[in-house]
Computed example of a mutant assay.
Amino acid sequence: MYGYQMDLLRSHLSWRETAEGVFERHCDHTWWGTGAMVGGYVQALALSAMQQANAELDKEALSLHCQFLKPVLEEDVRAEVRVVRRGRTATNMRCELYSQEKMAAVALACFAKRSDLGGFVELEAPDFAPVLAAESPVRPEVGLAAHGHFDFYPRLGSFERGQGDAQVGGWVAPRWDAGCDVSLLAVVADLWVPAAYHRWRDELGVVGLDITVHFRATAAQLRGLRPMLQLRSASALAAGGYVDEDGEIWSESGQLLCQYRQMRLVF
Results as ranks from 00 to 15, higher is better:
residue 17 E to S: 09
residue 146 A to I: 12
residue 52 Q to P: 01
residue 116 D to P: 04
residue 74 E to M: 14
residue 218 T to F: 04
residue 92 N to M: 08
residue 6 M to L: 06
residue 10 R to W: 06
residue 160 E to H: 10
residue 50 M to C: 11
residue 241 G to L: 03
residue 69 L to K: 06
residue 57 L to Y: 06
residue 162 G to T: 03
residue 32 W to K: 03
residue 113 K to N: 02
residue 251 S to F: 03
residue 98 Y to H: 09
residue 35 G to Y: 10
residue 142 V to P: 04
residue 253 S to K: 15
residue 44 A to F: 08
residue 34 T to I: 10
residue 97 L to I: 03
residue 13 L to N: 07
residue 70 K to I: 03
residue 26 H to L: 01
residue 15 W to E: 00
residue 77 V to K: 01
residue 230 Q to C: 12
residue 56 E to M: 11
residue 105 A to P: 03
residue 251 S to C: 11
residue 149 H to D: 11
residue 187 V to P: 05
residue 220 A to C: 08
residue 106 V to M: 03
residue 230 Q to Y: 14
residue 255 Q to M: 11
residue 27 C to H: 05
residue 144 L to R: 15
residue 254 G to W: 08
residue 62 L to S: 03
residue 127 D to W: 09
residue 184 L to V: 09
residue 82 R to C: 14
residue 45 L to Q: 02
residue 17 E to T: 09
residue 201 R to H: 15
residue 206 V to H: 04
residue 97 L to M: 10
residue 72 V to F: 01
residue 64 L to T: 02
residue 267 F to R: 12
residue 153 Y to T: 12
residue 80 E to P: 10
residue 38 V to C: 13
residue 198 H to D: 15
residue 29 H to S: 15
residue 220 A to H: 08
residue 99 S to Y: 00
residue 84 V to M: 01
residue 150 F to C: 02
residue 75 E to H: 06
residue 100 Q to E: 07
residue 118 G to A: 15
residue 249 I to V: 06
residue 86 R to C: 08
residue 111 F to T: 07
residue 34 T to C: 10
residue 194 P to K: 04
residue 161 R to I: 02
residue 194 P to N: 08
residue 252 E to Q: 06
residue 196 A to W: 15
residue 164 G to S: 10
residue 79 A to R: 03
residue 81 V to K: 11
residue 218 T to Y: 02
residue 256 L to G: 11
residue 217 A to V: 12
residue 135 E to A: 12
residue 37 M to P: 01
residue 184 L to W: 02
residue 27 C to Y: 08
residue 150 F to G: 05
residue 109 A to Q: 11
residue 13 L to Q: 10
residue 258 C to Q: 04
residue 247 G to P: 01
residue 29 H to T: 15
residue 265 L to C: 00
residue 76 D to Q: 04
residue 40 G to Y: 15
residue 89 T to C: 03
